[in-house]
Amino acid sequence: MSISMLDKLLAPGGLRCYAQPIVHVCGNNCAVASVECLTRGPQGTPFESPGVLFDYARRKVAESTVDRMAVATALASVQSLPGNLGISVNVHASTLGRDAMFVDFLTETARQHGIELFRLTVEVVEHSPVWNATEFLRSLRLMRKLGIRVALDDVGTGQSNYRMILDAEPDCFKIDSYLVQKAHTDYKRRAMLASIVQLARDLGSSVVAEGVEMAADLEVVLDLGITLIQGYIFSRPLPVSKLSPIIANINALPVPSSGRTLPFQRIHAAGDHIPQAVHQFERSAAVLIPNREIG
């Protein structure tokens, strides 16, 4: 019996944690407020991509199992980061709806790694419109009671819709990069962003703009009043071990005004920060087995 991909993912070292800073831009200053933990599968395989990894997990109806392993990997990885940084982890809504013990698992894992619960934000992601609403909402209430914040991921796309906003009452809206990127050239995207910002204000939620890569798009979201920024313009996702100098560099950067000389060049000059594709498959040397019979 061969080992399934799920077994490989759940084996020690099967999942790896990358982290990406979420930067608070205030006046002329930048400060890393938190990091989002992002899961990667086995290096050198197509499952290194989180898209493929979690697509597979959902097809196996194993979101809860993989989410638990991802959270455990993430919290073990970020325990060395400064205690003033928030920590975001992604969790499927279906996990919160099906796994009645998930919140207990999360809090116990955080305790094991010395991470205080008020630092945690659970980013709710969902790719299926059907979940156990009662259990899901119970999990959210329990997390809030413990001081864990709730963010709604991918707002503006997929299942992160108005119903989810009403039900989840998120502390934070994370606006999907689809709406953010090219906003500087697309009035429709700007209109939608403005609408979401207004909705978040009315509901008392904070807003993070995800996927900010271009200076012009940064200018748009700042002008709309979004002050929490995540994207390649500050840092691509990195192994946590490489994050500290990047955080120090971002914290030292001024935010330019209308001139918009953005931090991109300076970050590049700091080294080890050139955006590049995540998927770089390293293949072992192929073994030629001429005329070997198959089957």
Binding site: S4, M5, Y56, A286
Partner: peptide, 24 residues
């Protein structure tokens, strides 16, 4: 064996052992 032979021919090759893996 199949994947490594095809790799040796210069193709880029992924492998899947089960339906869900292939579909993803």
């Amino acid at each position: 064996a199949v994947a490594e032979y095809l790799l040796s021919l210069g193709y880029e090759v992924d492998q899947a052992a089960e339906r869900e893996e292939a579909e993803a």
